[in-house]
Design a binder for these strands. Sequence first.
DNA 1: ATGGGGGCCTGCCGGC
DNA 2: TGCCGGCAGGCCCCCA
Length: 283
Amino acid sequence: MPELPEVETVRRGLDPVLTGQAIARADVRREGLRWPFPRDLAGRLTGAKVLRLWRRSKYILADLSTGETLILHLGMSGRILISGTPLGKFHHSHPAPQKHDHVVLDIEGGARVTFNDARRFGAIDLCATKDAENHKLIAGLGPEPLGNTFNESYLAEALQARNMPIKSALLDQKIVAGLGNIYVCEVLFRAGISPKRKAGRIAAGRVSDLVPIIRQVLGEAIESGGSSLKDYRQADGELGYFQHSFRVYGREGLPCLRPGCGGMVARVVQSGRSSFYCPQCQR
DNA sequence: ATGGGGGCCTGCCGGC
DNA sequence: TGCCGGCAGGCCCCCA
């Protein structure tokens, strides 16, 4: 489920629990998720202190005192549960293990971080910290949408002459890293651009508008604590509420929310993913 | 090189 | 109640 705002929210919640702390014990309960786990994952985590917790696109990375970096991806259904912290519901106690709890980290001082992933599209890997940016999963990513290198001229160049629909282009992590199905729908709605329009066929001014709109949608979603991640929220005591701010996503058959539009939200399937949009005001 | 589709997994929900 | 199809916030890989 997680796109950039959800991953960033998870990272922020995890930061005070992990940064500066050592992993006392790692319980690795299966061989892998989408790919096999790296050799001796538990052994390489045990005793390591987390020096820095950062995010690149939808990946969470933990630089360790061992010189290695833990790379984490939540896939579609990955969730992180924090327990045993004063903030949590279960102060200094842990809930019973759940189905699909795959990796459990016991942190020095009593906190516990549990990685749960029903569909197992998630990923965990380790690499040398100095090579993290060049890791196979990271190296090909496009610019961070909230960073400086993502700007109007970059996006114009990236979309120029592209024959694919703008929906697919914005989902392409090589073009911009971190958007997923929900936020692309929301961005295109705010921009008034049809998801079916060819990326290379968007007027320059509208391409330029996309940049601040992308920043705005992601920024608002992060401020709202993302759109879901129930388990994590429960433990942390807070709720993500951006789902209440969706203007088109999931609104098939309902009236368009653009003032005065009067259209009705439609759903089309593009390369296997649902696109929600208003055919009346998104062109 | 580009763009599209299949496939990986489990869970949930609605209809019959 | 059970079964079945469709759907789900991702992304690699293969094919034309």
